[in-house]
C-alpha cells in the first residue's frame, strides 16, 4: 500500500509512512511519536488520529492495542481564546484556605 499518501494526522500532515519511519528511528513510545511527528498536536488534538495511531503502533510492535498507553489527552478538548478563559471566575485552589483571596 502506498503509505506515503495515507494521511494519519491531517492537522499536522503526518503520513502513515512518517509514523512508521519515526518508529524505526527509535521513537517507539506514543508520546515520543507524538512529539517527533507532530501527530495529534493540531486543532483536533488527536480526535482524528489517536486511535488510528495506537492501532498502527500495535501492528508495529506486534502487541495488543489495549496494552498501549495513550498519550495524555490534555484539556481543553477544543481551543479556547484567552479572552474567553479570562471571563471565567478563578476557581479557588483546593489547598487554599476558604477565606483566601487570590492576588492575581
Amino acid at each position: 500500500m502506498n503509505d506515503n499518501r495515507i494521511i494519519l494526522c491531517r492537522c499536522e500532515d503526518v503520513t502513515l509512512r512518517d509514523f512508521r519511519q519515526a518508529y524505526a528511528e527509535g521513537f517507539t513510545e506514543l508520546e515520543s511519536l507524538k512529539r517527533y511527528t507532530g501527530l495529534g498536536t493540531g486543532f483536533c488534538q488527536g480526535k482524528g488520529c489517536l486511535s488510528e495511531a495506537v492501532l498502527e503502533l500495535a501492528v508495529l510492535r506486534d502487541a495488543d492495542p489495549a496494552g498501549i498507553r495513550l498519550t495524555n489527552i490534555r484539556p481543553p478538548a477544543e481551543p479556547l481564546t484567552f479572552a474567553q478563559l479570562a471571563g471565567l471566575d478563578i476557581p479557588e485552589h483546593p489547598a487554599q484556605a476558604d477565606t483566601g483571596e487570590d492576588q492575581s
Binding site: 478563559l85 476557581p91 492575581s104
Partner: peptide, 12 residues
C-alpha cells in the same frame, strides 16, 4: 491540569 491555571494565565 487545573482550570484555575488556565484562567489565571489568560488574565495575566
Amino acid at each position: 491540569s487545573q482550570l484555575r491555571f488556565a484562567v489565571r494565565f489568560a488574565r495575566a
